[in-house]
Design a protein around this nucleic acid. Structure first.
Lengths: 218, 218
DNA sequence: TAAGTTGTTGGCCATGTGCCCAATAAAGGC
DNA sequence: GCCTTTATTGGGCACATGGCCAACAACTTA
């Protein structure tokens, strides 16, 4: 009856193991919070010993910041995918904002809230947050600029318009941990409306353009 | 040589001691972060033993949430004082937003960021955050409504306008822990501009009205 | 002045954290 | 085949946290 369910040690290639650790830590940070990314928690999730995590990330804070960067990058890619289809900027922006508003991105908002607060105490995380913010800003500024040049958006200041949209997104994200209020109006569409106002779009445009127009072909 | 610098015990009235603890905890939370509100940290600041803090707050999380509520209420009072002078709503709103933008309220933004994140894990804090949010919203909605009735503001939806201003404020607050960027534009006036746009005020009105008009009187 | 109430202390325990180090075992080079 | 490298383990240390509890002492009351 000597069942040998698993070998005592399963040795893996360093890069593979490191990536595995990073992926797991990112998931934990996203789902349970960045402060739950501990050596023991990550090790448990992978079925290894805590010392192994230390072996790949001698400084625990580095694992934390790298895991945040990984999670943020992945989620941003899901929210604002690369423009391979050459979609019209309105449509890309519409999908971005409508997904963020309606979709299941509460974990992402929580992650950003988490990271922005925790970066108060952890320097490397603060750098990672800054880098991710720069990246997001750059992508949105580029998108707005493209839309302006395409004649789809109208604004006197592309950068400020993009920043204003992001400020609204981050403002809504601040409430990600709130209990759902039984009374009182929510204003979940604030980012969408801000975008329409700042980019010279008619109210309702973004929601209408969020889904591919299949009415004719359907 | 028997110097008796301090009595071993300085017994205080319960309410007085409790208020002292709360005030100290609020200051620590505001300056150092809510997670620094520990039994030992508060006890050290007061020169007493940790057990005494437990005596007044048997559940440490209750001290945390009460300290946050205390700090948030105090700071809100400083930022948006009660309307004893019967100031015009434009002026009250102007002072509120300009103080928040220019003044030394970074600690306050950090506190809110801190509380909103930490409320993910701590139920009583989440309730306190919700209550403080309701209070702030109610006061701003009232202010906007007063301004509309006074003919100073123009909006089709007072509540949404107020909420939009707060969302912008909270969005800017999300960056409270960021390093000051050497390059790139900041958009610190976003809340002021949002308010002017949503309330039908000419750009620049709020900054102009923030200070008492002393030009005539010299 | 004596007794009682309770604010306050000192100490301990269980838990969780990052980090360090020697021992072990799996993989690759010769 | 052996030998070297290193991925992985197991154990431990120092520190911080919240909470519990008995003893002490300041103040009130009789």
């Amino acid at each position: 009856m000597t069942s040998r369910p698993r070998p005592k040690q399963s040795r893996k290639l360093p890069e593979q193991r490191r990536a595995e650790i990073l992926r797991t830590a990112a998931r934990i940070g996203l789902e349970e919070g960045l402060e739950r990314i501990t050596l023991r928690r990550v090790a448990d999730a992978l079925g290894v010993r805590p010392g192994l995590i230390s072996h790949y990330f001698p400084v625990a804070d580095h694992l934390l910041s790298e895991a945040f960067a990984f999670a943020a990058t992945t989620e941003r890619g899901s929210l604002l995918p690369s423009d391979e289809e050459e979609l019209p900027p309105v449509e890309r922006l519409a999908r971005f904002l409508v997904r963020l508003t309606d979709g299941d991105y509460r974990d992402l908002s929580r992650l950003w809230l988490n990271a922005r607060h925790l970066s108060r105490f952890k320097d490397t995380l603060r750098e990672a947050v800054g880098a991710q913010e720069s990246q997001t800003r750059a992508e949105l500024v580029a998108l707005v600029g493209k839309g302006v040049r395409a004649g789809e958006f109208t604004t006197d200041d592309e950068v400020r318009a993009a920043l204003h949209i992001l400020i609204t997104v981050d403002g809504l994200g601040a409430y990600a941990n709130d209990d759902a209020p039984q009374e009182g109006p929510d204003y979940g569409d604030a980012a969408i409306e801000t975008a329409e106002a700042r980019l010279g779009l008619a109210p309702g445009t973004l929601r209408a353009r969020a889904l591919p127009a299949r009415t004719a072909a359907g």
